[in-house]
């Protein structure tokens, strides 16, 4: 998960240095608005298409395959990819494509859960700490330091061990391991907005703390966090796939993508498609998400 933040934070840091207090909410919205109306690069278009396909797989798997992902035709085990089975079959004669398609719902949902946990818990911590400051900020800051100090994949592993092995718990663990980065980003964004001129103005005009928080600070601070969230979504897919690969997700016949790779692994010698196909699907989806996040991020910076 660590990696994710690089690009986003980079730009957040950039703001702090160059734009400083001038960086008011109004600018941001017009900036990204202009960007969205502008020409969408081809690669971003492809990325959105990839994401749309996977979302469609998750929502309506039966539209894309009529084969049962959990029960196959044992006599057709290890069929190579071809016209009948586009991505071949596995060790029990199950259609790999059907398994990937039916596994996407679980992979996407769990990544979504992870990001939601990261955004909500981390965001709240950053928001409260950044807005209230003082000892609360100090305490929350230490908690964030601690969470950052533990390698995030290790943290996810021990949390999923404590919760029990299934994909939902792996998602929760992944989300918790990402709390710290969201908290940091949210806090720095809040600090930056809080000191800006128009918040001062709102305060002078007698706005209550809560009102200012929700009316002015949150909407402006939330933008960089959302951009990070998109990137984290991709990384959550990777982390959850990693956990599934190590056997900490749902057991077969579930077909989470990481599990598919783990399952296919011992057949790499004679049925390499069982590893390569789901592995590439993970890579392509994460790549698409990263591309979109980068694009959103660039939009924000202009």
């Amino acid at each position: 998960m660590t990696a994710a933040i690089l690009t986003t934070d980079e730009s957040a840091g950039g703001h702090q240095q160059s734009d400083g207090p001038n960086h008011a909410g109004q600018d941001i919205s017009t900036g990204s608005g202009l960007r969205l109306r502008g020409r969408i690069p081809l690669s971003v278009g492809i990325a959105f298409t990839v994401l749309a396909i996977v979302l469609a797989w998750s929502l309506f798997p039966d539209l894309f395959t009529s084969r049962n992902p959990a029960a196959g035709v044992p006599n057709r085990k290890f069929t190579s990819p071809g016209l009948n089975y586009w991505l071949g079959t596995d060790h029990l004669g199950r259609d790999l494509l059907a398994r990937i398609i039916h596994g996407s719902a679980s992979s996407m949902t769990s990544a979504l859960i992870a990001v939601t946990i990261g955004v909500v818990v981390g965001g709240l911590m950053g928001l409260v700490g950044g807005y209230l400051g003082g000892w609360i900020d100090a305490v929350l800051g230490r908690v964030v330091d601690v969470l950052l100090a533990i390698p995030s994949f290790l943290l996810a592993v021990i949390v999923v061990t404590a919760l029990g092995y299934d994909t939902r718990n792996a998602a929760i663990a992944t989300g918790l391991s990402a709390v710290a980065v969201f908290a940091r980003l949210m806090r720095s964004s809040v600090l930056q907005v809080r000191t800006s001129v128009f918040i001062e103005a709102a305060r002078v005009n007698g706005g209550s703390g809560i009102y200012i928080l929700f009316r002015h600070i949150l909407p402006n601070a939330v933008r960089p966090v959302l951009s990070l969230a998109v990137l984290q979504f991709g990384l959550a897919i990777l982390t959850i796939a990693g956990l599934a690969f190590l056997g900490y997700g749902d057991p077969p016949p579930a077909s989470d993508w990481g599990l598919l790779v783990a399952d296919g692994r011992e057949h790499l010698l004679h049925a390499p498609w069982l590893v390569i196909a789901p592995g590439l699907v993970i890579a392509i989806v994460v790549l698409a998400v990263s591309r979109i996040s980068r694009w959103l991020d660039q939009g924000r910076n202009q």
């Binding site: 990696a3 991709g234 990384l235 990777l238 796939a241 990693g242 690969f245 990481g258 790779v261 783990a262 692994r265 790499l268 010698l269 390499p272 590893v275 390569i276 592995g279 590439l280 993970i282 890579a283 392509i284 994460v286 790549l287 990263s290 591309r291 980068r294």
Partner: peptide
């Protein structure tokens, strides 16, 4: 770098072993 970041490292490892060792 984005491609590197997006590829699951277990996939990279498995392919490296398959190609370079086996």
């Amino acid at each position: 770098p984005t491609v590197f970041l997006s590829t699951p490292n277990f996939l990279i490892g498995l392919i490296l072993i398959q190609v370079f060792a086996v």
